[in-house]
Design a protein around this nucleic acid. Structure first.
Lengths: 215, 215
DNA sequence: CGTGGTGTTGATTACTTTCAAGATGTGTGG
DNA sequence: CCACACATCTTGAAAGTAATCAACACCACG
């Protein structure tokens, strides 16, 4: 019930980038599953065999090291599809960041749907490899700038960007600590590049400056 | 001519992991193309439309930042296939590291070959995402250890590992400077974990210790 | 109106980079 | 076959960036 209410709020703020109910050939659309904030969608080692399309909310995909260090490899917002990493078993964890609705498409075999999966896999591959450049060769400011630019683009290029995730999530995505993320936000604020409307809502004041910093 | 001679040396030391001349359905096998050390195979922005299978030698896949910083996203050794990143145009550069032979498979459209491309794309995706964890959350020793463990596995788990690439390449792959890479090698040597038979040839003395360090 | 979770800021520490010099190796030409 | 030369690699010292440790502020929720 609580999730439902929250869901509506999210829905209005995260505009889908693709048609939300785009069906896949040979698979009947499933009803939307709801996940409250923090709920696991699938775990590393679990059997794979479904595609997940975010209806509203946001999802994080991550891996853990033995000592608990976490690397978030991707965020998925409304309209985006995930779950096809790995062959038969999942190599990553997927968790709802906020109250999230996910449409699940059970698929018989990946091979049968390869035509539809390939573009998704290639897109994911390109994204991952671009992120490698960020983690391998960019400093803290550049990483945060790249992250914000990406979020802006995925939300339609609006002046205002909503961050569905916490600073910890951002840090674990960018390979930084939350303190460093926080300090960079402060620096960008002081430079007049961004304004914090609230903790999770940012106004991009100087879009070009941000773009320049991100490379 | 010189390339040919060098090629033989490479061929004997880098055992292929898959059948080398594995053909793809619907594409006739092309003759092997030779690339001398440092030669570009394709460039960012170029039209894509071929698969490349390494016959011997080694290839680096990388991106550049405007100021010249380079991130190598992958190395490809004998037997491995690359070139399917990106949709219609390449998003990365591919270069021969040493004298390298590559079998080129021209493909009509990615969609037609999706059944064969999907496993490759998924494998690449998984690798890239695992590498994200290394770059985002591991320190210099852990990165080098992870790199060595990976190289050992890809060369069949032998005690002796050949590194076809320079320290600069390793640094640009691990997001480190060549000095740091060199220092870590020295530390591993002092700890008795590895021995340097030559600059590009390493003996793994304590395989377990290396594995432990890599996570 | 507390209370726990998040986020910010400051001081210090640790790690990696940068700058610099020297060593080692490889290839070339004598 | 040896010697020179250029590239690659190693090592050292200093500087810089981000992490860690710690305290406090701010929200959101009960």
């Amino acid at each position: 019930m609580y999730a439902q209410v929250n869901a509506k709020i999210e829905l209005s703020s995260y505009l889908p980038r693709q048609g939300l109910s785009h069906a896949f050939d040979g698979v009947s659309a499933q009803p939307v599953s709801y996940f409250p904030a923090g709920r696991e969608i699938y775990a590393q080692g679990e059997k794979a065999g479904a595609l997940y399309q975010v209806e509203f909310g946001a999802v994080r995909i991550y891996r853990l090291l033995a000592d608990g260090r976490r690397q978030i490899s991707a965020f998925h917002l409304a309209g985006e599809t995930f779950g096809f990493e790995g062959d038969t078993t999942h190599h990553f964890f997927a968790e709802a960041i906020n109250a999230t609705g996910v449409r699940v498409y059970r698929i018989a075999s990946a091979a049968d749907m390869s035509r539809q999966l390939l573009p998704l896999a290639l897109k994911g591959l390109t994204r991952a490899q671009e992120h490698l450049l960020v983690l391998g060769r960019q400093n803290a400011i550049e990483r945060v700038a790249a992250f914000l630019v990406d979020m802006v683009e995925r939300q339609g290029g609006l002046r205002q960007v909503d961050l569905p995730m916490s600073r910890i999530d951002i840090g674990d995505y960018l390979g930084l600590t939350i303190e460093t993320v926080s300090r960079v936000f402060t620096r960008l604020k002081e430079k007049g590049v961004i304004r914090l409307l609230s903790l999770r809502s940012i106004e991009i004041v100087k879009h070009d400056a941000l773009r320049d910093m991100s490379e």
